[in-house]
C-alpha cells in the first residue's frame, strides 16, 4: 500500500476492468447463440468488482457498490425469475410456461425468446449480487492473524 508499489497493476487494471465488464455483458446477451448465459456473465461481473477491490482496496469498492446494493440486486434477480413464472400463471399457462406469456399460436417463438431473456437477466442479477455479497462478507471481516504467521 505504500508509494506506487503497484503502479503497473493499477494502470493495467484500470484499462482492463471496463473491458471485462463489457465481455460479461457480451457473454450474457450472446448466451443464446454461443456458450455463455446468466450464470457465467454474473460471475464475470462479480469478478470485475472483486478485481477492483483487490487492486484499489475494499473501502473504495464498498463506496462504489455498497453491500446493501449487492444484496438488493441478488434479491431482485430472484424476484425477476419468479415474476416470469407468475406472469405465465396470470396469462393462463403453467408456472414458467413461456409459450403462454403472449398467448401465441403454436409455432410462435416470441414468448420463448422473451421468457429466456428475462429469466437470464434474473439469473445474472442473482448470481452477480450473491457473489459480490459473499466476497464482501469475507473481505470485510477484520483479520485476526499477525503477519508473522505467514
Amino acid at each position: 500500500m505504500k508509494g506506487d508499489h503497484h503502479v503497473i497493476l493499477r494502470v493495467v487494471a484500470k484499462a482492463l476492468i471496463p473491458i471485462i465488464a463489457l465481455y460479461g455483458f457480451y457473454v450474457h446477451f450472446h448466451g443464446e447463440y454461443s456458450p455463455g448465459g446468466g450464470f457465467q456473465a454474473g460471475v464475470i461481473l462479480a469478478v470485475c468488482v472483486i478485481l477492483y477491490s483487490l487492486i484499489f482496496g475494499i473501502a473504495p469498492t464498498m463506496r462504489a457498490i455498497t453491500p446493501g446494493f449487492a444484496r438488493f440486486i441478488a434479491g431482485l434477480g430472484f424476484i425477476i425469475y419468479v415474476g416470469v413464472g407468475f406472469w405465465a400463471l396470470a396469462m393462463g399457462g403453467n408456472f414458467l410456461d413461456y409459450d403462454a406469456l403472449f398467448r401465441e399460436e403454436p409455432g410462435g417463438h416470441l414468448g420463448q425468446h422473451t421468457g429466456i431473456i428475462v429469466i437470464e437477466i434474473g439469473v445474472l442479477f442473482a448470481v452477480a449480487g450473491s457473489m459480490v455479497t459473499i466476497f464482501y462478507a469475507f473481505a470485510g471481516r477484520v483479520s485476526e492473524i499477525r503477519d508473522e504467521d505467514w
Partner: peptide, 24 residues
C-alpha cells in the same frame, strides 16, 4: 453440471464462512 458448478461454489462459500467462525 453447469448448475452444479455454480451451486458448488455457493455451498463452498457457506463452508468457508463456517470455518472462519470456527477459527474465531
Amino acid at each position: 453440471m453447469l448448475t452444479a458448478i455454480v451451486v458448488g461454489v455457493a455451498t463452498l462459500a457457506v463452508g468457508l464462512a463456517i470455518i472462519v467462525r470456527i477459527r474465531e
